[in-house]
């Protein structure tokens, strides 16, 4: 697809973008919050037992571990 037609399709897409209801926005916020919470607990929290259990995966996934 050329850059011009891509821009045109994006413009059309903007025109037909559906409005978001407050409950939909809340659902997105909840999912993003849940995602970051899991990342914080599994990947970054420093409780000794969590750190011990997640140690190898934290190193292998590139998280700061120690």
């Amino acid at each position: 697809m050329s850059a011009k037609s891509l821009t045109q399709s994006q413009t059309r897409a903007h025109a037909r973008a559906p409005a978001r209801t407050p409950s939909q926005l809340l659902a997105y916020i909840a999912v993003i919050f849940l995602g970051f919470s899991i990342l914080a607990v599994a990947g970054h929290a420093q409780s000794p037992s969590l750190h011990g259990a997640a140690h190898d995966t934290r190193h292998a996934t590139g998280f700061p571990c120690h």
Binding site: V31, G35, F36, I38, L39, A42, T57, A60
Partner: peptide
């Protein structure tokens, strides 16, 4: 823990 971390990423991605 690999599953947990990628579940977190998966939620952000969807």
């Amino acid at each position: 823990f690999s599953i947990a971390i990628y579940c977190g990423y998966g939620l952000l991605l969807v």
